[in-house]
């Protein structure tokens, strides 16, 4: 795989799953994997290091947005040409990486965004689907960007996009913030069909659907105060 591709994973207490995720990426010949341990209380950092990732550590928990930004900054510093944000809990498939990275490396678009609602079928729990579609609607309403899946953590950013997108939101609102940045910085993007794996483990790890309300509140606050 192209040496300019970097995979960034934010991990908080993912000691049980992170080794497998890193290993599957390495096996698929993605040698540049950055794991940002976001102040975990478990052995995430050591496990990720042993598995062969570049492990960075937040001394205290700052949230997924903050951790991804740290990883992205690191990858840019190391000369990355394409940066993928990937989940730590095994929800994203290594098989989808090629399709995500291709358009960015070829220079067709600045950013690709994974979507579980086009093409391939993910087995999405009903309540989750309802909230995700609500999120898509709110993104359209607040930012005027039309997507099929707004809060999919699977993205690929070109070096230029990674350098120009500003992630100020520390916690989960960063997903919407990135979309808003795409529009503001006039970056081109394309949605790529991906499959999200809803395993029992990832369901316990992912955020509660109710957290959507907190994110919405923050989105509105940022929209009007910044």
């Amino acid at each position: 795989m192209d040496k300019g591709v970097w995979i960034v994973i934010a991990a908080f207490n993912e000691g049980k799953s992170i080794a497998n995720v890193v290993k599957s990426l390495k096996d698929a010949d993605y040698s540049n994997v950055v794991v940002v341990d976001d102040g975990s209380k478990d052995e995430t950092f050591d496990v990720a290091s042993k598995a062969g990732a570049h492990a960075l550590r937040h001394v205290i928990n700052r949230g997924q947005g903050a951790a991804l930004k740290t990883g992205i900054d690191f990858a840019v510093r190391e000369g990355a040409q394409a940066i993928v944000t990937f989940d730590a809990d095994g929800q994203h498939r290594v098989e989808d990486l090629h399709a995500m990275i291709g358009p960015v490396l070829k220079g067709e678009v600045d950013v690709t965004l994974g979507s579980r609602f086009i093409g391939k079928k993910s087995d999405i729990p009903f309540v989750r689907k309802l909230f995700l579609k609500g999120g898509v609607f709110m993104i359209w309403l607040l930012y005027g960007v039309k997507l099929t899946d707004a809060h999919n953590g699977f993205r690929c950013l070109s070096r230029k996009a990674a350098q120009s997108i500003e992630i100020k939101a520390d916690r989960m609102e960063h997903a919407s913030e990135i979309i808003d940045e795409l529009r503001k910085k006039r970056l081109s993007y394309r949605e790529i069909p991906v499959i999200i794996l809803y395993t029992d483990y990832s369901k316990t790890r992912g955020q509660s659907s109710w957290n959507a309300f907190r994110i919405l509140y923050k989105m509105i606050l940022h929209k009007f105060l910044r």
Binding site: L56, K69, T70, D73, R77
Partner: peptide, 12 residues
Amino acid sequence: TRLVREIALRKK
């Protein structure tokens, strides 16, 4: 957050 990030990146 900026401080925590700076510490994380400096250690590397």
